[in-house]
């Protein structure tokens, strides 16, 4: 049996759950799939996932599960797993999963394979593909010492719309005990920091600059190119971390998600956390001195070369007409 742990916040299902259900259906090879929903009020989310082609939806409701804490989630999912005895436990590789899945694995003393982009084979013979070395290499890994093996799916690696729907799976409540005193984290309400003065989501064209730009003094080069293309300037995370551009211009999982007509990546390596924020762009151009940089995997047009030569040449060319 495969147990998918759904992710919800404030009674709203995280769409990445559907990607994980699609992955589970691919992995299953005849094994039944169950989806677990954890939270304080889960009825709507349980109904929503019950439309998937799965055997059953398990609901673990407890006041201590809202708001989310790693201690309460690790506790609840551990008791679910111990009673359901799955072969695999699948989750989307979200920040929440990053926070509690290793704790769950440590307590169960069972393998955890994270950030999986593909599955080869099905059932107990499956191997999982995950990036290593910043996406420069892809590793095929197998869990050792399961079952269960806990596996987390990279966001966007499986298609949510590929998840098969099957009418209505039975929803079953599962009793769980959580000692609120054993929950050591006390979360406050989530908040947003960056003033969203620029909405890059509306930009038609974006020139995004990465660490290849070397220093703050060179940022104007990117700005000049953006101007010549009638584009907004954006950046990878390290550029914003350094304060070379404001955080509101950061693209990626912890910044903005954009899908402009044109996205020019200037000296950006193409880490997955950056790609999730821009790979929906219609046309992607990558300029990078490293021909093996992962950014070329999503690019429509690529130039391998020194951005300090290419960008000025582009500006000259654009200003000609």
């Amino acid at each position: 049996m495969i147990l998918v742990i759904a992710e919800q916040r404030d009674g709203k299902l995280n769409r990445a759950t559907w990607e994980t259900i699609a992955a589970a259906q691919q992995l299953a090879g005849g094994m039944p799939i169950k989806v677990a929903v954890l939270g304080a009020a889960t009825a709507a989310v349980a109904q929503e996932v019950a439309s998937a082609a799965v055997a059953e939806v398990l609901v673990a409701e407890h006041a201590a599960l809202e708001p989310y804490t790693p201690d309460a989630y690790a506790f609840a999912s551990r008791s679910l797993i111990e009673s359901a005895s799955p072969t695999y436990v699948l989750l989307p590789h979200t920040y929440q999963t990053r926070d509690f899945a290793p704790l769950l694995a440590a307590r169960l003393r069972k393998p955890l394979i994270t950030d999986v982009t593909a599955i080869s084979g099905t059932g107990t013979d499956a191997a999982f593909v995950r990036p290593m070395f910043q996406g420069k290499l892809a590793a095929q890994v197998k869990p050792v010492g399961g079952p269960p093996a806990i596996v987390t799916m990279q966001i966007g690696a499986f298609r949510a719309d590929a998840a098969q729907k099957g009418g209505s799976a039975a929803v079953r409540k599962v009793d769980i005990q959580i000692d609120p005193g054993a929950v050591r984290q006390k979360p406050e309400a989530p908040f947003r920091e960056a003033k969203q003065a620029v909405d890059l989501g509306q930009a038609e064209r974006i020139v995004a600059v990465g660490r290849g730009i070397k220093s703050q003094e060179n940022i104007p080069l990117a700005e000049k190119l953006a101007k010549a293309m009638d584009a907004e300037v954006a950046a990878s995370r390290p550029i914003c971390d350094n304060g070379w551009l404001p955080m509101e211009r950061q693209i990626g999982s912890s910044g903005q998600t954009v899908a402009p007509k044109l996205y020019v990546a200037l000296g950006i390596s193409g880490a997955i956390q950056h790609l999730v924020g821009m790979k929906g762009s219609r046309t992607i151009v990558a300029i990078n001195k490293d021909a093996e940089a992962p950014i070329f995997e999503v690019a429509d047009y690529g130039i391998v070369g020194d951005l300090f030569e290419i960008a000025p040449a582009l500006i000259t060319e654009l200003e000609k007409s």
């Binding site: 394979i113 290499l137 590793a139 197998k142 010492g145 995997e297 999503v298």
Partner: peptide, 15 residues
């Protein structure tokens, strides 16, 4: 160990 690397390769391009 809790996992074993059975193969390592340069990733295939999707585009």
């Amino acid at each position: 160990p809790a996992q074993q690397i059975v193969g390592l390769a340069v990733p295939t391009r999707s585009k």
